[in-house]
Design a protein around this nucleic acid. Structure first.
Lengths: 302, 302
DNA sequence: AACAAATTAGACTTACTGTACAAAAGGAGC
DNA sequence: GCTCCTTTTGTACAGTAAGTCTAATTTGTT
């Protein structure tokens, strides 16, 4: 990287952390980095852009540090997850990023806000995926809610905990909040309460394709499971064949058609659901939910 | 109120809500209210002060609306609490205060930040007291944690829920989060995990005396309960008398002495705890906790 | 040495907060 | 209607900061 640019980035990082974003003037950064105004505007079109540039790398570093904790370890291990949370928060504390990020996220500068917003969403997404690692695919419908709630608990608990004991490790807080979370996983999967369907994650992050790919895997499993169920069920061979046809139709229509015919799909699903071997079965509602979600995403992609 | 001042407050409120704090210049407010700059600075020393003046009354209105829901109703009724939460969030939504408050709380202006900070604390305090109404005094040690966590869950759930369904009532969110909370109350009182002792509430709000008064009541009850326990227990009259003396000593020393002798108190407590009738009893740990807290507050008041 | 690219210093525009003060308007009592 | 005092106005001014522009200087390369 160009030395002048690096000087600017370093000085900016230092000053932002030290004094906050608004209170750091471009002149401050120029003085600190011993670079002239002209050069500054040669590399960055505004202070916002500089900030984004600086903290993109900071975020990346933090995420990498967190990722490294996972290597060679079981993704479903609770302890690993706690360590990852702890690591992330320790870095936040070490670099005193709390207030700075608060300032940026509430900034009235559109670009900045959007940048921080996106990072917030990436955090939720990461948590969502990790919760799926920890608690299993079966809990998926509730995991976006739990990721959101977990993040909220953690943020607030950290905030107030720092006020009561400023210089302690965040580990106690992470542990406390995680213990609460494990209870809530059981709680919501028992009561089946859902607030925000997980498909919104990709809506927010505006990358519907991803979600289709992720869903596809899960859908294929469920589809295969349904087929197995049918062959094992005590119904006539004719019905079995009919069901198989429907399943194949749904599969093709849903995943391979350019523009799935939603109404046809619904109809097909209904005929399937009418069979007594499926009524009241959890697998059926799961299956229906998946079809709905994927159809929803795919029509949006159009 | 002076008409010019009112004009300014009205215009400021409208513009702040519409455009945000930073993006509203004083000139904008002057234009909107048809008041001159001189008059503005006659009534407010800065834009910050104006903001604080405006939103002090807004906060008050919101709190009053919430308070009115409680009149004539049982403070321990869950439904009432949910309605109160819902009411507060609806007002936040109605007046579009979310982003505005976010902006203010992260502002780099010290006064503003302090003002919002204080309001945040008042919210936690309110929640804490209401949770005590709902779940009873026995849960007190865990209720600050729960108030903090509840607020965090609610904020984050609301934030993301608004993104998925922008124009719906917050009631679903409040209900969802409250349901989770009820589980956590059982959870933490079973595992006895505590993150932030409730005394910090008054430390943060910087009014230590209050807390002594509040604690005193609770302490008296527990003290009386201990005495009853002793008279009913199968130990010698001599031991009973000895224990009674210790209890009285602690009571006087702790609540009536100007400067309680902490080490003596600790010693007295230990002798009490040594008796087998107390070992492992929850009441004893509660009692010890209370003594610790009150002693802590009272020495700080000094 | 010659040339191109990077860099500098500083003047300049725009937009905002907050100060200062003289002039004008308003209102209460006589 | 007149006086006195307060409120209000209009405007000029100082200070800060973001961002633009340009002529001059430095640096690196061939």
């Amino acid at each position: 990287m160009n030395p002048k640019k690096k000087q600017l980035l370093d000085a900016a990082y230092q000053l932002f952390v030290e004094k906050g974003y608004q209170s750091t003037s471009i002149q401050d950064i120029l003085d600190q980095s011993v670079v002239s105004k002209g050069t500054f505007y040669n590399y960055f079109s505004s202070k916002n852009e500089l900030f984004i540039d600086v903290f993109n790398t900071v975020f990346e570093k933090m995420r990498n540090a967190r990722k490294e904790i996972l290597v060679g370890r079981d993704v479903s291990d609770y302890e690993t997850f706690i360590q990852q949370g702890n690591c992330y928060l320790e870095l936040m504390q070490k670099y005193k990023l709390y207030t700075l990020f608060e300032e940026a996220i509430a900034s009235n500068e559109k670009e900045l806000k959007a940048f921080m917003e996106n990072n917030r969403l990436l955090e939720i997404e990461w948590t969502y995926h990790r919760l799926r690692d920890l608690f299993g695919e079966a809990k998926t419908p509730y995991l976006l809610d739990l990721a959101v709630i977990y993040t909220g608990m953690l943020q607030y608990a950290m905030y107030f905990f720092r006020q009561s004991e400023p210089n302690t490790q965040p580990e106690r807080v992470v542990r406390y909040v995680f213990n609460r979370l494990t209870h809530l996983v059981e709680d919501v999967s028992r009561t089946e309460e859902q607030l925000i369907p997980p498909r919104f994650l990709s809506v927010w992050l505006d990358r519907p394709q991803d979600e289709v790919v992720i869903r596809k895997e899960l859908f294929e499993k469920t589809n295969a499971h349904m087929k197995r169920l049918i062959t094992l069920s005590p119904i006539s061979e004719e019905s079995k064949e009919a069901h198989d046809e429907v399943l194949d139709f749904i599969y093709e229509e849903l995943l391979e058609r350019k523009k799935p015919k939603i109404h046809l799909l619904r109809r097909a699903l209904e005929t399937l659901a009418e069979d007594p071997i499926f009524t009241g079965q959890e697998i059926m509602t799961q299956y229906q939910g998946m079809v709905d979600e994927i159809a929803h995403i795919r029509t949006r992609v159009q």
